[in-house]
Amino acid sequence: MNPFDYRRAEDAAGAVATVAADPRAMFLGGGTNLVDHLKLGIVDPDLLVDVTRLLPDGVEPLPDGGVRIGAGMRNSDLAADPLIRRRYPVLSQALLSGASGQLRNAATTGGNLLQRTRCVYFQDVTMACNKRRPGSGCSAFGGYTRYHAILGASEHCIATHPSDMAVALSALDATVVVQGTDGERRVAMTELHRLPGDAPERDTVLRHGDLITAVELPDLPFAARSRYRKVRDRASYAFALVSVAAAVDLSDGVIREARIALGGVAHKPWRATRAEAELRGARPTEETLRAAAEAELAEARPVEGNEFKPTLARNTLVATLRDLVEEERTR
């Protein structure tokens, strides 16, 4: 890596101004992804602005019944937070199924959202990658695609977003609080990450210099019975092949509401709106659950090497919903 300057920022506005003014400056959070990428040569900043000591790092209840999570909160602290464990178990589970205890102790909430794809071609700077070098081509097509997208991909990029936490936040309808040069704004979690289209180099809608300061969760009582199911090759310490975050509001044997997001299948956490629509008002039989899953995956387009993923995604979604419904029934 090339030499860079390091500065510890004292306040968010100053940090934002510094980074926004320098196209080669970057924020440094827990470092678990950025330091990794510095070594691989994926990024080449001339200035790192350390924001770990200025960002809020706790969970606080909001007047509207929701909660606000500080962007500097470490993944392990967030997963262990009593309020999150009780009211949003899907988020706790998603965090705990990601990475390792050591990494979770370092990684921050904001940084987790901004982690970049694990595509092996993205990570090897000697190979073409549109995400790393726009216009250079996508090496994943015709290559190793086991962890690649089946939904919402483009001819320019079939990478997936690797975060587990983001999948849970997407299902929970979280809002991301962003500080920019023109002040604070709020971005829906489902809108934060982009589909690749013809600009896969842009993972999110954020602009250079934007700093995530917090994530807010809405009051969602039925999320108290939610779950995260991660399917991966290793029993632990591995990225998802497919994951499902789901919460179901079931009363009188009918699904009133469902919140579902899929991981490991797209360039962003994939909010399963079609499945949710199918389930709304339905009785949760094996057939309706399966129909909902199939509706969501109707547009799935695997590539050579990941043909199994639509079936895996469908089955995992059905199994997760089945387990949730069963849990509701026996409660």
């Binding site: 092996v120 990570q123 190979m127 090759d233 290793r234 029993a235 591995a238 990225f239």
Partner: peptide
């Protein structure tokens, strides 16, 4: 788990680290 994936176009193993080349972890 173990599988060194050679991409014939590049002539080398592309899953060349311990996140992508899985060896058994404790939980296995």
């Amino acid at each position: 788990h173990e599988d060194s994936v050679v991409d014939p176009r590049f002539g080398c193993v592309v899953n060349h680290d311990l996140a992508e080349y899985h060896i058994a972890a404790n939980a296995d």
